[in-house]
């Protein structure tokens, strides 16, 4: 059996808010296998974002270990952690977070430029392929401000996937979209998951969104209170 893409062991995260300590996560154990389409669910403040941040190497745990693609994030330098994010993880944000001054094409190309591994012709082909698969081939020259929310999030999906990372994280990717648009985004993500075997971990409040997941991890008050397979999703 291959190594799991994510492995969190007895993870805790404590935020210092002035004098009071906020226990955002406590004793969290989580294993995510490659190819999963995992949803993290839980009420507001339960620690979903915190957990995704730790997995994404955007933050490091106060205690415990988080392994991503075999790397212990606590042991990496700032530089190496950034490199890990660049090469192994794609990010989809709740607020889309496109670079406003760049075109759709450039936004998607951005991670490839940071990686610097492809020739410009290779990049062009790759970006065009992705824009096509998210249905925005005709919008390459547009600016984010000229797109709808759903279109922007598709660009974000394309950007997250352009470097072909094994893992994509999405914190409430549909929270700023109406439910229909949100649905198409989840469908898109699910399609990518199926097609390339990319692992997706996303958080959501929305039961309808959750229903697409291959599995749901439930958080409450910083603890994992359960993990269930979403048969509905499996059924598809």
């Amino acid at each position: 059996m291959p190594e799991p893409i994510v492995e969190a062991v007895d993870v805790a995260k404590v935020y210092q808010l002035g004098k009071t300590e906020v226990q955002a996560l406590r004793h969290v154990d989580l294993v995510v296998e490659r190819g999963e389409f995992l949803s993290i669910a839980g009420p507001s403040g339960s620690g979903k974002t915190t957990l995704l941040n730790l997995i994404g190497g955007v933050d490091v745990p106060t205690a415990g270990t988080v392994r991503v693609d075999g790397e212990d994030t606590s042991r990496l330098t700032e530089r190496a952690l950034t490199r890990l994010r660049l090469d192994h993880i794609g990010f989809i944000f709740q607020t889309f977070n496109l670079v406003a001054v760049l075109t759709v094409f450039q936004n998607v190309e951005f991670p490839l430029l940071l990686q610097g591994r492809m020739t410009s012709a290779e990049r062009r082909r790759r970006v065009e392929t992705l824009l096509e698969s998210v249905g925005l081939a005709g919008h390459a020259r547009h600016r984010p401000s000229e797109l709808s929310g759903g279109q922007r999030q598709r660009v974000a999906v394309a950007r997250a996937l352009v470097g072909n990372p094994p893992l994509v994280l999405a914190d409430e990717p549909t929270a700023n979209l109406d439910s229909k648009t949100g649905g198409t985004i989840i469908d898109l993500m699910r399609e990518m998951n199926r097609r390339d075997g990319t692992t997706f971990i996303f958080s959501t409040h929305d039961p309808k969104v959750m229903s697409h997941a291959s599995a749901i991890v439930r958080l409450e008050d910083g603890r994992v209170i359960g993990r269930e397979s979403a048969q509905g999703a499996e059924a598809r």
């Binding site: 994404g56 955007v58 700032e78 530089r79 950034t82 490199r83 994010r85 660049l86 090469d87 794609g90 990010f91 944000f93 607020t95 977070n97 670079v99 406003a100 951005f110 991670p111 940071l114 990686q115 950007r159 997250a160």
Partner: peptide
């Protein structure tokens, strides 16, 4: 700040 944070998140180094 948010844009810069995004660039950092998706893999831009501090130097960048």
């Amino acid at each position: 700040v948010k844009e810069i944070g995004t660039m950092r998140a998706i893999g831009a180094q501090r130097r960048f």
